[in-house]
Amino acid sequence: MTKKILLSFPQKAAGQPMAMELIKTYHLDFNILKAFIDDNIKGTLLLEIKGEEADIEAGIVYLRQHQIGVRDIESVVEVDPDKCVSCGACTAVCAVGALEMTADWSLIHHDDKCLECMLCVKACPMRAIHALI
């Protein structure tokens, strides 16, 4: 199976060879989609991992044991339903249809379609779309 996960490394976990462990011990393939490290040496890594379901789960347990935050995600953007007014401005820039108006003119976010261009974050007048990395 394939899964997208967002890892957050606290300062003390940065510098450990986590990726090697995932490959060697848990037989996981992964593709680094995005990586970011801030001024406080806290890191964020968006991975698409491939492997047996049991191996993926065990790998995630291993990461968590090493104080690495793991979050399952489909898309790197989140729409805050309290701020969104369903104006539709974000749909103007979403060429892949991940952000779309429903038949009753509510905004719907098909997060599996998102290609992470992040243009919707800028397009949202309510600043209701938040990028996770």
Binding site: V85, C87, G88, A89, W105
Partner: peptide, 13 residues
Amino acid sequence: IRTSPLSSLKMAR
């Protein structure tokens, strides 16, 4: 060409 609204019909309703 794709069209997108900028004002909220949902809230207007």
